[in-house]
Design a binder for these strands. Structure first.
Lengths: 148, 148
DNA sequence: TGATTTTAGTTTACATGTAAATTAGATGTC
DNA sequence: GACATCTAATTTACATGTAAACTAAAATCA
């Protein structure tokens, strides 16, 4: 590799790179605990509110139920969660933490670690502005995609 | 689903959601042209500078060569690009656009479409601040991950 | 020059995401 | 009550990303 190729600033590209870097940081943090970020997201929902259904987990995590199905398979065979039937509705499945899953609940603060690093070099003022800006951007995009 | 579950604001989560939403928008844009975003990223490098090696493509796109190898397989069988040997270095492989690949070069401006939507609801002033803020965040994260 | 180390690319194994089809169980309407 | 429709979850097929092993070729160096 000799020269770096310059390209026009793409906000999407930057957001994507930044997001992936933040995810890598989270994965680094979780790796010693043999947990993936995807699994952490599920656990973080259950730590706050055990016994959610798959659909509720989907709403919370933004993952499709198809993705969750398989993810939960792995988490179940790792002994992190347990599926249970619902009396009233035989289609529905509730997900419960096992002791092992509950035992990792101190990791609920992982995102603070990532937050801290992300915001290291921003002034107080910038930090205050950032969240609403990102939320407005998300709104704009979601309006164009799926929820118009 | 009855109640929405509230959770503390995680910058990583927000960035991730935003990034994924922006990617979905890009995929929507590209779908009619039978192109994935990953493929577009490769093509966008080649449109600017045809005949890059796999390593150079990796540097440009941020993708690992392992990921590129298979991606290029698919793009090759779709007739978008062509691999060619390098005289001086038999290990190296250069990637060239085919006519079909070249013919899609008007899509190089796709990211402007996404940029436009992302920035719709930000003031001029906010837009000016955003890029440097995101770049500083990226710097902070990369310092902690892999490039310290 | 011959052995060792680096480098470029590929391959393999696995985790994850999406879309579309499938299954089983509710619901609604006549 | 019977049939049509909707819903919850799963399954399947496929694209993509990572890490680690592998291959072949170049570069280093003793």
């Amino acid at each position: 590799m000799t020269e770096t190729i310059s390209y026009l600033p793409s906000m999407g590209r930057l957001l994507n790179t930044l997001s992936e870097a933040a995810c890598s940081l989270a994965e680094d943090y979780l790796r010693p605990h043999d947990l993936s970020l995807a699994q952490w997201v599920v656990l973080s929902a259950l730590w706050r509110h055990d016994g959610l259904s798959v659909s509720e987990l989907s709403d919370y995590s933004g993952k499709k139920t198809a993705a969750l199905s398989r993810l939960l398979d792995r988490m179940e065979s790792k002994g992190l969660v347990r599926r249970s039937a619902v009396e009233d509705d035989k289609r529905s499945v509730k997900i419960h933490l096992t002791e092992k899953g509950q035992g990792l609940s101190h990791l609920i603060d992982m995102y603070r670690y990532v937050n801290g690093i992300l915001l290291t070099d921003l002034t107080e003022e910038e930090q205050k502005m950032l969240l609403p800006m990102l939320e407005r951007m998300l709104q704009s995009v979601q309006t164009k995609h799926g929820k118009p």
